[in-house]
Amino acid sequence: MHSHRLRGQNFLIVTVLNLFITIVEIIGGLLSGSLALLSDAFHNLGDSFSIVLGYVAQLIAHRPESQHRTFGYRRAEILSALLNAIFLIVISIFLIVEAAKRIAHPEPVNGEIMMVVAIVGLVANFASAFLLQGGSRDSLNVKATYLHVLSDALSSLAVIIGGFILIFVDLPWLDPLLTIAVSLYIASEAWPIIKQTVGILMQSAPELDFKSIDHDLMQIKGVNGVHHVHAWQIDEHRIIFSAHINCDNLQLSQMGVIYDQISKVLQEKYGIAHVTIQAEYNRGDDEKLFNTKEDQQNICN
Rank of each mutant, 00 (worst) to 15 (best):
G72E: 09
I78P: 06
L95A: 09
E112Y: 03
N125T: 03
A104Y: 10
E107I: 13
V116G: 00
L122K: 05
G121H: 04
S80A: 15
R75L: 10
L88K: 02
R102F: 08
Y73P: 03
I91R: 02
S80C: 05
Q67N: 15
I113Y: 09
S92N: 02
L122D: 02
R69V: 11
A76Q: 05
E107Q: 12
Y73V: 05
M115L: 15
L79D: 01
I86K: 01
S80N: 05
F87C: 08
L95N: 10
N84G: 13
I86N: 02
L79N: 01
A118E: 00
P106A: 02
L122M: 14
F126P: 06
H105L: 14
T70L: 13
L82H: 01
I89F: 09
I119M: 04
A99R: 07
I96K: 07
I91A: 10
I86C: 08
A118T: 00
V90T: 10
E107N: 10
V97L: 14
I89M: 08
R75A: 06
E112F: 06
A99N: 06
I96Q: 07
I93S: 03
A124I: 06
V97M: 13
A85L: 05
A124N: 01
R74I: 09
I86P: 01
L88E: 02
E98N: 12
E98G: 06
H105N: 15
R74A: 09
L83V: 09
S80W: 11
F87N: 08
L83Y: 04
A76M: 08
K101C: 10
F126I: 14
H68R: 14
F71N: 07
A124V: 04
A104T: 11
A99K: 06
F94V: 13
F94S: 12
V120C: 02
A124C: 09
E112L: 13
M115G: 00
I103Q: 08
P106Y: 05
R69P: 04
V116T: 07
A124T: 02
I119Q: 00
P106H: 05
A104D: 11
I113C: 03
F94I: 13
S92D: 02
V97I: 15
L95T: 10
L83D: 00
A99H: 07
A85T: 02
A100W: 13
R74T: 08
L79I: 13
T70N: 14
I96F: 08
V117W: 01
A118L: 02
R102T: 04
F71Y: 15
P106C: 06
V90D: 03
V120I: 15
M115K: 06
